[in-house]
Amino acid sequence: MGERLDIQKTYKLFIGGAFPRSESGRTTEVVAADGSFVANVAKASRKDLRDAVKAARGAQSDWAGRTAYNRGQILYRMAEVMEGRRSQFEVELVTCGSSAADAAAELDEAIDLWVWYAGWCDKFQQVVGTVNPVAGPFFNFTVPEPTGVVGVVAPEQPSLAGLIARLAPVLVSGNTAVVIPSEVAPLSAISLSETIATSDVPGGVINMLTGPKLDLLPWLLGHLDVNAVDLTGAPTDLDPAVLDEAVGNVKRVIRRDPADRGPYAITDFCEMKTIWHPIGR
């Protein structure tokens, strides 16, 4: 028997539950800490972004329309599936420069984040929703609703736990997401896509676009069918002209410390809806 040649993976985009290459046909080379070639990852174009937003929009009302219990179970399922694949993720993190110990710790963190937010799905409404004592014969209550389609610019590091820390709260309330993962360490995000595809998350709820953030950001911020963008993982010195793109549809632009994991990380991507009804016979 000769030495077996290992199979190199083609790291593709994740759009609408499928794994297309970039329509541009372009890729970016990822190199290991020692400078050796690791993989070519797809370089998403603005057209890929357009497709991803379309997929996210298409999936949104179904995702939001599910019961909170169901969303909670699906997010919990993500933890289950990741737990079973953790060695793959750890290898990828190490490939991209983490120590083995850091990679293991990050996996613990990443998986626990799914569990944490799974539990929030049917609880945050009771923390932030209210029954309002108006001065009149009306029943009046306020409930959080998902804002719609959210663009998530994931932190560069930690590339996996950071991404999940920002993505999971977006999903809790029923938003769908277009994620731009870490540029320096995108591999685990792509494997996360494969995990998502084999879990119970419906196609289109999470879409993953690898590629240069600064190329994609103007298109993401300028897209009128994207309701909110999380810039936590974007550079803080963004060109104001790029930020200006966000006002086209009065986009909600969020930055929040990934370590801040309370219900407000969820409500950043919620709209509060207040409903009035008379009380009478």
Binding site: P137, F138, P278, I279, G280, R281
Partner: peptide, 8 residues
């Protein structure tokens, strides 16, 4: 015979 809303 339309319904009538008391408060309104």
């Amino acid at each position: 015979v339309t319904p009538v809303d008391e408060v309104a």
